[in-house]
Amino acid sequence: MSSSGTLFDRALGEGRPALVGYLPAGYPNVAGGIDAIKVMIDAGVDLVEVGLPYSDPVMDGPVIQRATETALAQGVRTKDVLATVEAVAGRVPVVVMTYWNPVDRYGVDAFARDLAAAGGAGLITPDLIPDEADEWLAASDDHKLDRIFLVSPSSTDERIAMTVAHCRGFVYATAVMGVTGARDNVSDLAPALVARVQATGSAVPVGVGLGVRDGQQAATVGAYADGVIVGSALVQAVGDDPSLATLRNLVTDLAGGVRRAC
């Protein structure tokens, strides 16, 4: 069930940037993870990223590492991730964010087929670059899924153009050089990176991730990006408060932030 146009259509239609929320499946357990994502949708995210917990998460900082370790220790499986997608899909687009080996192991085409059947809209692939992605390019076409690759402040203009040309849904701009984690100051590298993506002339919208933790920062990032991606701060909120009230309040604050940004 690929989104038509872009994954940010709802927000962009309202003339504001989209709020993208990440939570790993299976954290604190499978049912609890589904509940947390539903709270996030109720409180105003425009797009959900469901994380697939992996044993060797090289792009993730301590908060997400600990959460995905907990999920794996609880025995979360790839099929639970697909079940989570199925349980939360329908109200807003849902994509899966995953390191590549679990998809490779499942079978790229089979994973694409089952993700589409579960109502998922696409994949964010932090350790798969388009250069290595032939199988996924074909499978995402066959099953009408979006594919979100990453660009970085260190990417050359040539690589940004090449990567954006392979993206569908949106392109994920990693705003800082580093791993995931909430930061006091969002990166000053981000506006320049977004401008370089836009300079390619592509119509694919740009989401900015890594570091955002509150509505004020969301408003700041939303002023120049098409989407504001929040991860670690949400994961932390789930870990700190099992009642999910903290999560609900944080998402409400972030949703207010993207509505102030223009």
Partner: peptide, 12 residues
């Protein structure tokens, strides 16, 4: 072989 790494490392 190949490169299965974050884009942030490709330039390096």
């Amino acid at each position: 072989g190949g490169r299965y790494v974050p884009e942030a490392l490709i330039a390096a």
